[in-house]
Design a protein around this nucleic acid. Structure first.
Lengths: 136, 136
DNA sequence: CTAAACTTTGCAATGGCATTGCACTCCTTA
DNA sequence: TAAGGAGTGCAATGCCATTGCAAAGTTTAG
């Protein structure tokens, strides 16, 4: 397990500090998108700004992507190993309004519609709100 | 013109105060989604909280919908006259990363994808970022 | 082996935006 | 015309993202 995490970091040329290993592990275990506050709560004794900067580093190296799910707090979720956060990597996110958890629906790719003349798309953020399978 | 605005309010049973007429007019004229700060700047001498509450009233009566375009500030845009802000009324929003303006693409309805088993959709927020036709 | 240079971390602000309590004004209505 | 309710303005408050600065840790050059 630890090897998998370290490999993920190595793959993206990010130095494996203790904090980074922990944050990455959390994101892998939870298997959903987490906010800064949620992550902080999972650690108890880590500083929020350190986690923030850890996540920033992760973003810059395509380890995580940020999700704006309208909850007020930005959520962070793991990227796939071959992700470069391009339009093609964008996928639908699902916010359950009951349990308040946000999931990546990686198997549900976004179909970019035909835009009006002169509009060009660089990035898509498609959020669906509803009830998730465990809350049904 | 003024009649059109007053009618919109009457249609939704919202009393036409001076502030409400002004805010509604702004939203009609700009033909795009505006943030609270943008609206405040257009008036110079109106209080932000008054505009906020005006917009809240508008939302509650399906006159405007709020858009989370990831800019940090919520944007507000006019609803169609027959809108009840249901899933069917949801449409794509476009944020131009050059001029920072957000538009409703009402002619580009959202196609809701097939969700994984057990997931049910109630609301969709589909935002596309890119370059708009006037910035191309 | 050691000192300098750089990176990471923790603490303590700061700033932006949404939201609300309270008092004042205005408008409606009995 | 007085009372009640609706609308407005001002001044907080709170939440979240972000950053400056100094301490601690790590790497590198000599």
């Amino acid at each position: 397990m630890k090897d998998v995490i370290e490999n993920k970091l190595k793959l993206r040329s990010v130095k494996p500090t203790a904090m980074r290993l922990l944050v990455l592990q959390c994101l892998m275990e939870q298997n959903r998108a987490l906010s800064l506050n949620e992550l902080e709560a999972l650690f108890e004794n880590a500083d929020k700004s350190t986690i923030f900067r850890t996540l920033k580093t992760f973003q810059e190296n395509y380890l995580v992507h940020r999700i704006n799910d309208g909850s007020g707090a930005i959520k962070y979720a793991l990227c796939d190993d071959d992700c470069i956060c391009s339009l093609e990597d964008n996928h639908i996110h699902f916010l359950c309004t009951k349990c308040e958890k946000t999931y990546c629906l990686k198997d549900t790719p976004i179909t970019t519609p035909n835009l009006p003349n002169g509009f060009r798309a660089n990035f898509a953020n498609y959020l669906i709100e509803g009830i998730c399978s465990t809350c049904t």
